[in-house]
């Protein structure tokens, strides 16, 4: 048994060594932009520098890969501020009581999802929900995305009176808006749901071939991305911190900083703005 104890001790030392490299308490945030995730750290380090200057506390950016990871980091107080999607923001605020949405992108006040179809799907663009997509193959974006999953699934259920798995011949999750476009454009999936901003950007960049794939319907507007802050920020970083942070965000005018998100500017937001998102998520059982 002595050997075992030795081994356990060794393992414990390793773990200790790993966790000893702990960071000093700084104000940490994370963000996943809805498009162009390259040079993430470089771009958001500049945002961190801006916030540090405005807030007078050390600010650090840590990159994450998924909304789920962002929510975990937020709940575990590894980050105190996060740029969430509509749905992930609701989930995060449920996980951390008293946390609040403090600002959203200008575009996020009236966000929308495009339904796109390959020409072989033979679905024409319309202002009504295109019921002809039933029975086709369909791809969402990432599983936890508001524009790529929640809202399209809601409208599919509302209009086709069926779950996507029942309504379509096959349902995939591309994991990313760009991947959705690529997969529908190649005809791998006949129909897909995509964040409208990503579509517009890729169209402008010439990555979309309009003879192969086109927008067939757009959803009504809904609120999307927002900055969410933990409720204990004022206690930890000093009185008035929340207000100072909100002002810093709303006054972010530098185009090169805003391009990281990418948004035109930020406007004030509050938790109630996302009540509709929460209700929708509950309606389709994405929230318990």
């Amino acid at each position: 048994m002595k050997q075992l104890r030795l081994l356990t001790a060794l393992a414990a030392i390793f773990t200790l060594l790993l966790s000893l490299q702990a960071t000093a308490a700084t104000f940490t945030f994370t963000a996943i932009p809805d498009e162009d995730e390259s040079r993430l750290v470089e771009r958001f380090n500049r945002v961190a520098a801006y916030l540090e200057f405005e807030l007078g506390v050390p600010v650090k950016y840590i990159p994450v890969k998924s909304y789920a990871a962002a929510i975990t980091a937020f709940r575990n107080n590894q980050v105190q501020l996060a740029w969430f999607g509509g749905l992930s923001g609701v989930q995060a605020r449920l996980a951390v009581p008293n946390s609040q949405a403090i600002a959203q992108g200008y575009e996020d006040q009236f966000f929308k999802t495009y339904f796109i179809a390959h020409k072989n799907a033979n679905v024409e663009p319309s202002t009504e929900f295109p019921k002809a997509i039933a029975g086709k193959t369909f791809t969402f974006g990432s599983k936890g995305s508001t524009s790529g999953r929640l809202m399209p699934e809601f409208y599919i259920r509302e209009n086709l009176k069926q779950s996507p798995q029942e309504a379509f011949e096959r349902v995939g999750f591309s994991g990313d808006h760009s991947a959705t476009i690529a997969q529908v454009q190649s005809g791998a999936y006949q129909v897909g749901a995509v964040n409208y901003l990503v579509w517009e950007t890729e169209l402008a960049a010439g990555k979309v071939d309009p003879s192969k794939v086109k927008v067939i319907w757009e959803t009504p507007n809904y609120p999307d991305y927002q900055w969410t802050l933990r409720g204990d920020a004022d206690q930890v970083y000093g009185k008035g911190f929340t207000k100072k942070l909100r002002n810093a965000l709303l006054n972010m005018k530098d185009k090169s900083l805003l391009k990281a998100f990418p948004r035109k500017s930020f406007v004030a937001a509050k938790n109630d703005d996302y009540k509709a998102i929460e209700d929708t998520a509950r309606a389709i059982d994405l929230l318990q």
Binding site: E35, D36, E37, S38, L40, P63, V64, K65, S66, A69, S174, G175, D176, S178, A179, A182, K207
Partner: peptide
Amino acid sequence: GFIGLPTLGFYFETAFKQGQYSQ
């Protein structure tokens, strides 16, 4: 890296999914 640790997969997943095939 696919789920966020800073290894090669972190950059790879981003580049591949967003169609930056050279990267």
